[in-house]
């Protein structure tokens, strides 16, 4: 698991959420599952949580509530 960094996972998450803007809301777990699929054994759930937290804390992504909790781009 040493090859992929948290920053790389965070960037890939950001790219995924950006690409889905206006098409489909993604739950945090959806984003993590897609990352684990993309990076394979190099990434686990813990790493995804850290990457997501980094994105949220930095303000690149934000949470949204619409019947359930989703991650999305902040409003411009």
């Amino acid at each position: 698991m040493a090859d992929v960094t948290i920053d790389q996972v965070a960037d890939a998450m950001f790219e995924l959420v950006s690409s889905m803007k206006g098409k489909r809301d993604l739950k945090p777990m959806d984003v993590s599952k897609q990352m684990m699929e993309k990076f394979g054994d190099d990434v686990d759930k813990k790493m995804c949580k850290k990457a997501l937290r980094q994105l949220i804390d930095s303000g690149r992504l934000t949470y949204k509530y619409a019947g359930g909790s989703y991650v999305t781009l902040p409003e411009a």
Binding site: K64, Y65, A66
Partner: peptide, 17 residues
């Protein structure tokens, strides 16, 4: 109406729009 993007930086809960 409820929901939306409101909240405090870093948290995904605690504030209900």
């Amino acid at each position: 109406k409820h929901g939306g993007l409101v909240g405090v930086m870093g948290y995904g809960g605690g504030v209900i729009g």
